[in-house]
Structures are given as C-alpha cells and as structure tokens.
Design a protein around this nucleic acid. Sequence first.
DNA 1: CGTTTTTGACCGGCGC
DNA 2: GCGCCGGTCAAAAACG
Length: 217
Amino acid sequence: MPSNDEAASDHLAKEVKRLSGENKKLREVLSVMYDNYNTLRKQYINNCSTSGTSRKRKAEKITSRVNSELSDEDSSCNKSRVLVHHHHIQRSDHTTLLVKDGYEWRKYGQKITRDNPYPRAYFKCSFAPTCPVKKKVQRSVDDKSIIVATYEGEHNHSKVVLEAGEGSSTTTIGHSHKQPEFNKLLIDQMASFLTRDPKFKAALAAALREKTTLTHK
DNA sequence: CGTTTTTGACCGGCGC
DNA sequence: GCGCCGGTCAAAAACG
Ligand SMILES: [Zn+2]
C-alpha cells in the first residue's frame, strides 16, 4: 500500500517540522537564559571585585538585583506589595525598543538612568483597560545587543496571540483586532469591575440623588 | 477620528 | 529644607 506509506511519511514530515519549530523556540529560550546568567555572573564578579571604587549605590542595586533574580522562585520578592516581579531578557534588533511579545503595550514614559547611557522605557498593558501590568524596557549596559524587560503584575485577561512562527500551528484564538464582540467583552469586564467597587456605588448613588433633587425642584 | 508616542513637567521617597 | 533620581502624568504631536 503506497498510500499508507505516503500518509505515514507525510505525517512524519509534519511532525519533524513541528518539532524543529519547537526546538528553535527552545534554543531561543536557552540562549536567553544563558545571556541572563552571563550578565548576572558579570555583575556578581564586578560587585565582588569593586571594593576599591566607592559606589554604594551601584553595590546596592546589584545586590538587590541578585537577590530578586536568585530568590525569584523561593521567596518571590516580598518587597512591599503583592506585585510579582519577573525579569526577562530578549534579543533585539539594533535600534528598536518597541518589543512585540504577546501583549499590547502603551508607552507612557521614558527616562534616562544614572548608570546606563541607554534610556529606559515604561509601558502599560493596553489590552484591557483594567489590566494593571506594567513593564520597563532598557538596553543592558554590558551587552548592547540585549535588552532587558522587567515585568510587573499579572494580566487579568486572556492572553490572545501567542506565536509568530512559520510552523504549522498559528494558534491565534479568534479575535484579531476590531470585533464588536471583543469590545462587548471588554465593556462587560469593565462593568463587572465597576459594579464590584463600593466607591462607584456610592458615587452613583450620590449622582442619582443630586439629579433627583434637581429635577424634583 | 481614535489611539499611541513623545517629551517636559511633576511628584514622592531618600539621603544629606 | 535641598537636590537627586526613579516613576508617572498629560498635552501636544504623530500615526493610521
Ligand atoms: Zn494585560
């Protein structure tokens, strides 16, 4: 039966393609992890060997960064808030600081920092109006082909677009960009968010009261 | 027209 | 108090 063999080989070819795509992604992740480790090691060595240069600020920053990076798993930065810090490093092209990961971001600031000639950009997740996630993106001092993004917070909406690979699976869930259904979902989310807020209830009651008295007069 | 980027103003914490 | 510094706001500009 040649058709069976053909089907089997076709299936195998598809599987190989999928696996190679997955492998590529894994390689990328590994490279990112390696870069992360390398920069961290550099900073650690630098911190250990710079006992002569009096830079208490630098030392403090490095220690804090080391702590946040190393104890990310165990005692995930009990700094002051419930906010969850998460660091990630991403390869970049040469001149862009606008990074496309699976979310939509609105840039709301950019500052120059003391110990880094490259500016730092501040983004907020604009996918849902109620999403509190922010991220800071700035090029690394040591390796200029690397930009480091620190995420903060947790998304409260479903992640939508996942991957832009050429593999067989382009797992885009439904909505692309401009659907009334999506807007409806957003409005629903906002409404539930507002009605859950007692302050909003009080304000609404006050407004209604004022309006009724006004019309009653 | 709505949304996003730009960019200086602004604010609050911290060390002095 | 003052200045520094990281973070945010918001008005204008830019984009589609
Ligand atoms: Zn989000």
